[in-house]
Simulated scan of single mutants.
Amino acid sequence: MTPAHSRDCPMAEQSVGWVLHALEPEEEFEVEGHLVGCPVCRTIVRETEETLGLLGSSAEQAEPPPGLRARILGAAATTPQVQPPVPPAPPVPVVVEPPRRPAAPSAGSRRSPWTRVGVLVAAAVAVAAIAGLGVVNAQLRTQRDAEAARAQSVVAMVQQMSRPGAQHAFLASAASGQTIAAVVSDGGVRTVLPVDLPANGEDRVYVLWGLPGTGSPAPLGTFDVAGGAASAVSVGSTSGGAGFAQYAISIEPGRVAPATPTDVVASGRAEI
């Protein structure tokens, strides 16, 4: 990590915007030229890319509704299958005339009842498909808005990491070893980004713990994670502004932090 006193650069925020492609073309050229000679901003760019990579790997993919295929097949199965009518017997001619060659039917006059059935089936399939696509588009819009809100939270956390004296930690799952949360501590205010923490429900709560070098873990505050892309949440400190060697997150029954953690789901070493 770059020392805290050297991370103060006036181009730090523009470097984060450059990673997110949120700058005007002139600003992008300016930042690219600045990055060549500024190790501080290159470190900020690397940390921002790593954090966005964690978010990208945790985003759920939107799939078409499971019932869409069944609705399409059901519409086709319930469409009446009309049998072609039996043509009536031709009348007995009274006067015998030379047979005339009938004119070739036009393309529009060849549509049989079977063709009309096919049109009805195709229309039913199209209506069902359009309805299903509407549901998928709504899901994609919801996911896009949630990811945009979480990206803004990432920018705020990266800016906090860049401040002198701020601590941060990436917390790995106790089961898989994958990073599932991040913590930033700045002046006693601690922020948690639940990268891949599942929703806790109403009967349980997440607790952030501070682990000193020696001694017992200290409960720093509780927080909730709802379904979907979770944004960063502030977790109040009950132990002042002192830093910790490690941070951990546990899931606890009820709505109150216990004296000691019950089920630790993630932990990680604090860095400056």
Rank of each mutant, 00 (worst) to 15 (best):
T2M: 13
P3I: 10
P3K: 13
S6L: 14
R7N: 02
D8T: 14
S15G: 00
L20Y: 00
L20E: 09
P25K: 05
E26M: 14
E28C: 05
E30D: 08
H34C: 02
G37F: 08
C38I: 02
T43W: 12
I44K: 01
T48W: 00
T48G: 00
T48H: 04
T51R: 09
T51D: 03
T51A: 03
L54Q: 00
L54N: 00
A62D: 13
E63Q: 11
P64M: 03
P66K: 07
G67Y: 15
L68C: 09
L68G: 13
R69I: 15
R69G: 14
A76N: 09
Q81K: 12
Q83S: 15
P84A: 11
P84Q: 11
P85Y: 06
V86R: 09
P87F: 12
P87L: 11
A89L: 10
P91V: 04
P91F: 05
V92Q: 04
P93Q: 10
V94F: 13
R100N: 10
R101M: 15
R101K: 14
P102R: 10
A103I: 12
A104K: 06
A107E: 13
S109G: 01
R110N: 11
S112W: 02
W114V: 15
W114R: 14
T115K: 07
V117H: 11
L120Y: 10
A122Y: 06
A122N: 02
V125F: 09
V125R: 14
A128R: 12
A128F: 14
L133G: 10
V135A: 13
L140E: 05
Q143C: 06
R144G: 12
E147P: 09
A148I: 13
A149H: 12
R150V: 07
V155A: 10
V155C: 12
M157L: 06
V158H: 04
Q160S: 06
M161G: 05
S162A: 08
G165A: 02
H168G: 03
L171A: 04
G177N: 06
T179R: 07
V184H: 01
D186G: 00
D186P: 02
G188V: 02
V189C: 07
V195G: 00
L197E: 01
P198E: 08
E202T: 15
E202S: 15
G210L: 07
L211H: 09
G213N: 08
S216C: 13
L220F: 02
G221K: 07
T222Q: 12
F223K: 02
F223W: 03
F223V: 01
D224A: 14
V225Q: 02
V225E: 01
A226M: 06
A229D: 07
A229K: 06
A230G: 01
A232L: 07
V233W: 10
G236Y: 11
T238S: 15
G240V: 08
G240L: 04
A245W: 08
E252W: 03
E252H: 01
P258E: 03
P258R: 03
P258V: 02
P261L: 01
T262L: 14
V264Q: 05
A266N: 00
R269Y: 07
R269W: 10
A270T: 08
